[in-house]
Amino acid sequence: MSTINGRACVVNGTPVDKVFSNGKQVYGRNLALNTSIPISIQGDSSGWQDVKKIELSQNPAGLTVTFSYAVTIDRLDSGSLRMQFLANFSPAGGMPIFVDFKSLQPGVKTNFYKTIVFPTFNSSIGSFNDYMIIGISNSSALVKFEDLNVVIGDKILPHSPAPEDVM
């Protein structure tokens, strides 16, 4: 029998990938570790600030993955928030995390999502790491990044911590 432990679903001490209720998926295992606490980033107007390394519990290369997250900024700004895996990671659908601050209202938490199929790389052009870097560029705003879900599949699901974070 499943038990909910801090909203992460565990069956007999082992994290599960998905939970269904009445035929509808209601839980997907968050691959992004240590994302229970929001990340606050104070911009300094530089071109790129590596701010937070987020470990993944699984390498997503070749899988359909949905990213969902929320962003709040404290003032009107022309910068952006984005993620990187490697310098040469550039899927046809664009980066799964990219927010142009011009589209946000200050003080309003805005939710985003994007589903992509991660490309696979051969050794001559690079390989994925089991982490991603979240950063901001050309911004002086205080940015709050939260509710990150990195889930295998194409469903947009409510945020839940990675099972490893609560076990």
Rank of each mutant, 00 (worst) to 15 (best):
Phe145Ser: 01
Asp74Arg: 01
Thr120Asp: 05
Trp48Ser: 01
Thr66Gln: 10
Gln49Glu: 10
Gly79Phe: 05
Val99Phe: 02
Ala8Gln: 02
Asn129Pro: 08
Leu142Trp: 00
Ile125Glu: 13
Pro161Ser: 05
Ile4Tyr: 10
Leu33Trp: 00
Ile39Lys: 06
Thr35Gly: 01
Ile125Asn: 14
Arg82Cys: 06
Gly13Met: 11
Leu31Cys: 04
Gly6Arg: 03
His159Lys: 11
Ala8Val: 01
Tyr113His: 15
Arg29Tyr: 01
Ala92Arg: 08
Thr72Gly: 05
Ser45Trp: 11
Phe20Gln: 10
Leu81Arg: 05
Arg7Leu: 12
Lys18Gln: 14
Ile97Trp: 11
Asp74Ser: 02
Gln58Ser: 09
Val26Gln: 08
Ala70Asp: 10
Met1Gly: 15
Leu63Asp: 14
Ala32Phe: 04
Asp44Ala: 05
Asn12Lys: 12
Ser36Met: 08
Ala61Thr: 04
Pro119Ile: 08
Ile136Gln: 11
Asn12Tyr: 13
Ser40Asp: 14
Ser139Lys: 03
Leu76Asn: 14
Gly43His: 09
Ala162Trp: 05
Arg29Cys: 13
Pro161Asn: 06
Gly23Ser: 04
Leu63Met: 15
Gln25Arg: 14
Trp48Asn: 03
Ser124Lys: 10
Ser127Val: 05
Asp154Gly: 09
Gly6Cys: 03
Val117Met: 10
Thr64Leu: 02
Ile41Phe: 03
Lys114Met: 08
His159Gln: 10
Leu56Lys: 13
Gly62Ser: 03
Ile136Thr: 14
Leu31Tyr: 06
Ile125Thr: 14
Gly126Thr: 09
Phe98Gly: 07
Gly79His: 05
Ser124Gln: 07
Ser137Tyr: 04
Val19Phe: 10
Ser57His: 02
Lys18Met: 10
Thr35Tyr: 02
Ser140Val: 09
Ser40Leu: 07
Asn22His: 06
